[in-house]
Design a protein around this nucleic acid. Sequence first.
DNA 1: GTGGTCTAGACCACC
DNA 2: GTGGTCTAGACCACA
Lengths: 120, 120, 120, 120
Amino acid sequence: MIKIDPSDKTPIFEQICKSVCKNIAGGLLKEGDKLPSARELAKLLQLNPNTVAKAYSILERDGIVYSVQGKGCFVAKHEGRANEKLTESFRSAVREALDAGASAEELIDIVSEISREKNK
Amino acid sequence: MIKIDPSDKTPIFEQICKSVCKNIAGGLLKEGDKLPSARELAKLLQLNPNTVAKAYSILERDGIVYSVQGKGCFVAKHEGRANEKLTESFRSAVREALDAGASAEELIDIVSEISREKNK
Amino acid sequence: MIKIDPSDKTPIFEQICKSVCKNIAGGLLKEGDKLPSARELAKLLQLNPNTVAKAYSILERDGIVYSVQGKGCFVAKHEGRANEKLTESFRSAVREALDAGASAEELIDIVSEISREKNK
Amino acid sequence: MIKIDPSDKTPIFEQICKSVCKNIAGGLLKEGDKLPSARELAKLLQLNPNTVAKAYSILERDGIVYSVQGKGCFVAKHEGRANEKLTESFRSAVREALDAGASAEELIDIVSEISREKNK
DNA sequence: GTGGTCTAGACCACC
DNA sequence: GTGGTCTAGACCACA
């Protein structure tokens, strides 16, 4: 369900966030579902509990999840936010590319090209 | 020609790389042109020569530039590499977004939307 | 495990790279093993941490090692890359010699000759 | 006759030396032939005369060439030395590779492989 | 003067 | 603690 790639340069806490968001966007996690406890997940993924806690706290701050003292962490309403968070980094990449002088057409071509590749 | 934003969180050496690539992609720098020497550029941008040297060495590794002992740093044959490098981070963002379950259409919509915003 | 000859004219960071590659090729370091931290190794070899970091970053760029923020540097899946890197400079010397007009037989004779010398 | 690649990392004076040696080994230059004057060659190759002079002085030191005050630089006897000089860097590469732990067999395989590639 | 390497010591993000 | 980045200042080989 939640997978981490330690050789990936994106911080692990962020990988956890995205993983959870994917699960919500993909329907695997629905409103009210309980997430594994930080300690549990840390053990499962061989991570430092602090790292998982950080990820959860960010998800909570962004309203994607809410935690109840002593009970655990649950998926919040408003699934849209999970999707937003997923496309957030894409949005900033688009802004960056446009700043770098690329045209919208170029970027759209690239999207089509990569999409085609993936569907092979 | 080459501008740096010290308040930007992206590493300075990377800002230099992109700046040079923009100049090449934009036609301001052509094959064989000499880049300012590391020391000179460092002085100009108020940076440490090592930082500039790091940027240049990365550009060299990527085949965008070649350096000659005792003479300086020159732009190599392009073959579009400068452009590629500029859109590189965008490409990986696209891949990531597709992996996260987004459709090509969604991404294209986002590109159009942000592009429209920018042109306001 | 990793040894440096400061009197050797080849750059220290390259000596470190080769040393690590030798250890991998020789089986002393296996996939997933942790390399000594840059600071630690620097202390051990009486070097500046930056020098070690440079070596590690080159090894990472060549896919021989991967580094994880806050955790350390680990050997990657090899697929023979370490061996390749070790014989890399030999390969280019072969190409150069052939370009200079030497025949493969000549070169093989030289290899045999030097090998015999070494084994004396 | 003499070609220089400025993007090549080997020092230019060394490229000149090798180029001259190739010409001797290949029979294009014979004992007693006059080399272009340092100034002339420098102009031809767009180099600093000092660089050419350095190359010539090395060739003279190695007995491959002799210079006569006011007359110029001439190819010396003993063609063998030119060949030796050409294979010299190959020899050191062999020593290095053996030191790095490669076996003579491995190196011979590499020679055969590259030779086959070249003859395609 | 130019690039390439190295040392010394600093700050940051991440774990 | 770890790696990643940056500054300051030094030495060398090359042109």
